[in-house]
Computed example of a mutant assay.
Amino acid sequence: MTTRRTFLMSAAGAAAGAGVITILPFDARANTAGGNTFPTDGGEVVVHPVEHASLILETPAGVIYVDTVGDPAMYADMPAPDMVLITHEHGDHYNAETLAAISGEAPILTNPAVFDMLPEDLKARASSIANGETTEMMGVGIEAIPAYNTTEERSNFHPEGRDNGYVLTVDGLTIYISGDTEGTPEMAALSGIDVAFVCMNLPYTMDAEAAAAAVAEFAPSYVYPYHYRGQDGGTQDPETFAQMVADAGAETEVKLHDWYNGSLS
């Protein structure tokens, strides 16, 4: 019997064996029957990349916004949120003005540090979750995965214990959102991840080589490299990352999307 999970794993294994890299169109909404859609036991999850670390998941349980920042106009044509997740306080992940403008009355889930700094009107419909804790919202299981720097000279950017990544379980589909982190023991210990979003930029997180090594270790079925623009030469090449994942023999298909300029060529 072919289940959703065995379908995903067999497809990913075949893709990895062939070195397949999927390049996604800029307008993800034009491709909801293709590369951005993942089956669940109760329907489909559609991924809408927005920019940098911001993304939207359209799921059978509802629409989930993640790390919503930037011009509210970027969200104008997107489905309205039913839930908002914030990983941590940095301005490319949390902006109170953007959050107020686009979140409507949707509940907000954050790490404790962001919860403490929310304006009172947003805090009234927010809750917090700390590293290692679990909760459920809209029938979606949520686990807060520690997100932090392991390299000593980068530890001031994301100290251990403060920031979250998230594992979401939506009708049997497991989705990992890394937030800002390096490859940690907690990431390596993940198992059964269907779709992952993994950051890579310097000096703030990790380079493409470290990200590829981390992905090869926990082996999600699919991975989107995102959050890859850095400073002082720290921007990472997602296509290089994809080749490194393939060279490592990971049973993971890499899905490439240009999170900054439109489309990859």
Rank of each mutant, 00 (worst) to 15 (best):
T37C: 15
L264R: 13
A211K: 02
F218T: 04
G19M: 01
M137C: 03
V167G: 06
L57Y: 06
N201T: 15
Q231V: 02
A73C: 05
A61G: 04
D163I: 03
D41R: 13
E160C: 09
F241E: 03
A147F: 14
H88W: 15
V215T: 13
T184E: 02
P49S: 04
M9F: 10
L264A: 12
Y224D: 02
G249S: 06
D180R: 12
P107I: 14
G139N: 02
P112A: 07
I108H: 05
D67E: 11
D67H: 00
A130H: 06
P185H: 09
G139I: 15
M117I: 12
D180G: 08
E182V: 00
T134A: 08
F197W: 11
T3N: 02
A147C: 05
A113Q: 09
D194L: 05
F7G: 12
T150K: 14
H93W: 04
A28Y: 00
G35A: 00
G183R: 12
V69F: 13
P72E: 11
L118E: 08
P107N: 13
I142D: 03
V170T: 06
P146Y: 02
R5C: 07
A214E: 15
I21Y: 01
P49A: 03
N36H: 12
A100N: 11
A11Y: 10
Y204T: 06
E58F: 00
G233R: 05
G165Y: 00
S127G: 10
G179K: 08
W259M: 12
Y260Q: 05
S103H: 03
A216H: 05
P81L: 00
S263C: 06
D71T: 00
K123L: 02
I175M: 08
A246F: 08
P119S: 06
M1N: 04
A76I: 04
F115G: 08
L85P: 05
H158W: 15
D232T: 14
Y226P: 09
K123S: 10
G230H: 06
V140K: 08
V245Q: 13
V215Y: 06
P220F: 02
A113D: 04
I175P: 00
L24P: 00
F7P: 08
H257Q: 08
A216E: 09
I177F: 12
P107A: 14
Y222V: 13
S127P: 03
